[in-house]
Design a protein around this nucleic acid. Structure first.
Lengths: 249, 249
DNA sequence: AAATACAGGTTCAAATAATGAACCGCAAGA
DNA sequence: TCTTGCGGTTCATTATTTGAACCTGTATTT
């Protein structure tokens, strides 16, 4: 892997932490030598992607991405266009709704609207969503060209819970079902006790750019309710796509 | 410069463009060999920091910073805390107000609230604000420890307009005046026809983290009005700091 | 109070990755 | 048809990255 790739992976590792991290730990986490990690951190800090706490000497994500994100969103306001739909859907179904976007070879959560109920699913911002083990991932996969689906099915499939489907053949079936239905359902494949339904947000070309997903505790879901939620999610996702691509110059 | 630094500078160059750019052009812009630029772009694209238009083959800023920015803002909600103050100030003074943050060795605009007036100053998101030639920069400088001020004054000072102050001694005077007064005033030093007033947003330690600035067309400003605006900006900046540092865990 | 452990940070010879001139193939314009 | 300029690639040369061992300061243990 190139130096740049390694540095960006280090940044990625830091971004997935919710607290500051020391040099030794971050080097171990990114499987880099301490000296190498330090050089990368210094370089990243120079550009504002990382910052070091002056007191504790620990490192954390810096402010530079905020600037870049504002620029990106001025041209491609995906989150701001989608936010009202996410909120409306969360209110309609009374469950946590999250939006993910494909970027850097994976799907990551970029917006969350929590359910108003006390017992609700918590989704972390920035979490990478594995294609085979989440409703969002399946919804995304299902609308990819078949050669890209096959390529994704060849990747090793990590097990996240007792219910994770890790057989390529079984995943292929789920993907086909999702494509036919228009939305996906994932039962506890990522986290026990959570069932999700998701629909892709499609570009005019037909290519998915991300997913909209509802995550509910299994305790209050039935098959019928999930199908209903799935349909509503599909409608909302289509609404996002229409507004996002319609409003652009 | 390290490979990482070069790649991040390339990313920075791309971010400052408001349209897509081709390989040859971006290589020239970043003063890199075409082959080198391509390798960097591929690496940056793998991680989602850059994306290539499938049709035109041109490159643009990717979606990865959006994810990182959301994570950063969940912990340090500088923009979202400041936004209401920015808006209120814009309404109060009837001019364009912008917020900048120090990151990666420079001050960049991260939020803008346009004046409601037809004749208004346009501030671009993401624009780097030179310390010596903008009100924001002077406000930031003025509250730095004196050794850091001196270091900044030793940097070469670019001329942006006929009115840009480029003499270190003259800038030092402006900085001293700003420190005494609590806010800065910059008359057409960055762009002709624009006069600005700015105040720093200070951390509890006393270190500035960014600036709040009002930019008005010279045509409708008087010295008295700018002083009034300056005071209001100072109050708003202090409000941001109080809320930002008060609300944190 | 001395000893230990471990943190952040640095050094420099050895190992590896970055570099760029020259190249290819293609498409638009002359 | 020929030329120009684009995106993209190649590979011998060159410069950068690498990491074991090293400092130094500070908690923690004995």
């Amino acid at each position: 892997m190139s130096t740049i790739g390694k540095a960006l992976s280090l940044l990625d590792a830091i971004s997935q932490l919710d607290k500051d991290i020391g040099l030794t730990d971050v080097a171990r986490l990114a499987t880099l030598d301490k000296a190498t990690a330090r050089r990368f951190l210094v370089e990243l800090e120079k550009h504002g992607f990382v910052e070091q706490d002056e007191e504790t000497r620990k490192y954390r994500l810096g402010a530079a991405p905020v600037r870049l994100a504002r620029i990106r969103q001025a041209r491609f306001p995906f989150v701001s266009v989608a936010a009202p739909f996410v909120k409306a859907l969360a209110e309609e179904v009374g469950e946590t709704v999250h939006l993910s976007e494909f970027s850097g070879g994976r799907l990551s959560t970029i917006h969350v609207e929590d359910s108003s109920q006390a017992h609700r699913v918590i989704v972390d911002l920035g979490t990478p969503l594995p294609f085979h083990a989440t409703a969002s991932g399946l919804a995304y996969l299902a609308f990819l060209p078949s050669d890209e689906i096959e390529r994704a099915l060849k990747q090793p499939m990590e097990r996240f819970s007792d219910e994770t489907v890790t057989e390529p053949e079984a995943v292929r079936l789920l993907v086909k079902e999702t494509a036919r239905r228009g939305f996906s359902i994932n039962q506890q494949g990522f986290e026990m006790g959570v069932i999700s339904a998701a629909a892709p947000v499609l570009a005019p070309s037909g290519k998915p750019i991300g997913s909209l997903a509802v995550a509910a505790p299994t305790a209050r879901t039935t098959r019928a309710r999930m199908l209903d939620i799935g349909h509503k999610t599909m409608t909302a996702a289509a609404g996002i796509a229409q507004k996002y691509y319609g409003a652009k110059p």
